[in-house]
Design a protein around this nucleic acid. Structure first.
Lengths: 193, 193
DNA sequence: GTCTATATCGAGATAGAC
DNA sequence: GTCTATCTCGATATAGAC
């Protein structure tokens, strides 16, 4: 195992992940990460040349997390319809955080879209969305949807994002629960023939 | 007219509004606003005691802008159905900016939700969403919807937000146009009896 | 009311001892 | 590999001349 597998490196990435989510990337300082981990600031530069490299590692970590969530959906059911329903229910598993800080991908994307700098990281972030959309597209394909499978997938992700935003703005977990059910009903309806 | 009506004050607010939108609140410095307006940094403190006061003024300005957009919709048609269709089409009028920087209220809300500080400004921001939701609720009421009028209103706003996010992430104005039409179709469908 | 000079702080980043 | 000390810069904010 190289430096990528170092325990300290992992602790930095994990703490940065939490802080980038709860405070935002730009509003998280090396001192914040240092306070959380107990690892002194100067040590960070042994693992990462710049703050942006930490961001890249965090994004990679989130990609891995979402991949494993999709695999969970795959393993729990072999029925694409049931898989999509499981997928739609995922935000409720972290309902409290979602309501408080929004979607970990959506909010980071919005933030980085305003930074002229981080082109690399931004490309990697759309990769998370790509991952989710491709997975959903595949499920819709299996359900018999053809050319419009990707449209349905993008619409589904858009709906989840929109519901998350409103739930976050109003700190309203009831709204998140209700609209999650609405999306599930919509899914059942369009796949019931 | 007091200091609130000063031309310089207004120029500061207008420049800050643009910059908070394109770069984000936290990533916009007094120097940026100074560069845009030609007004030296130190002068800002004659009109605003802190940066957060500038933010409050910007939020007030955005509230006013959205109010006038709603009044435009009101004046163009007296049919609530037609008004809602006009409302849904609004994002396309600033399509380029929407695709590049996202929704001016949605992205600012997401950003401030992660700042532990700006409670006041955040309260004012939800006021913008309140404004839109109440206006839509009223239209749905006029269309004969009763207890579920507000639900439809919130769902409509959520859909617009979600579509904006995806369009922004992918820089995809085609998606914004297609989903705008989809929302219009949905509106026509639920109001056609 | 307007502008210059400057204070103060915290950010990211570096050098080098151990 | 780890940690301390420090550099440099740019941020918000202040003081005070004009």
């Amino acid at each position: 195992m190289g430096t990528k597998g170092s325990a300290n490196r992992q602790r930095i990435v994990d703490a940065a992940d939490r802080l980038f989510y709860s405070r935002g990337y730009n509003q998280t300082s090396f001192s914040d990460i240092s306070d959380e981990t107990g690892i002194p600031r100067g040590n960070f530069y042994y693992y990462f040349k710049t703050k942006e490299e930490i961001l890249e590692a965090v994004v990679e970590s989130r990609v891995a997390i979402f991949k494993s969530m999709l695999e969970q959906c795959d393993s729990k059911s072999s029925d694409p319809r049931e898989r999509l329903l499981l997928f739609v229910g995922l935000p409720l598993e972290n309902e409290e955080q979602i309501v408080q800080y929004g979607c970990p991908i959506g909010t980071l994307s919005s933030e980085l879209a305003k930074d002229q700098v981080n082109e690399i990281s931004n490309a990697k972030l759309t990769a998370v969305f790509d991952l989710l959309i491709e997975w959903c597209t595949q499920q819709f394909h299996l359900l018999g949807f053809d050319t419009n499978a990707k449209q349905y997938a993008m619409d589904l992700i858009a709906r989840l994002q929109g519901n998350t935003i409103i739930a976050n703005v109003y700190g309203d977990s009831e709204f998140l629960m209700r609209t999650t059910n609405d999306v599930k009903k919509w899914l059942k309806q369009i796949t019931s023939n």
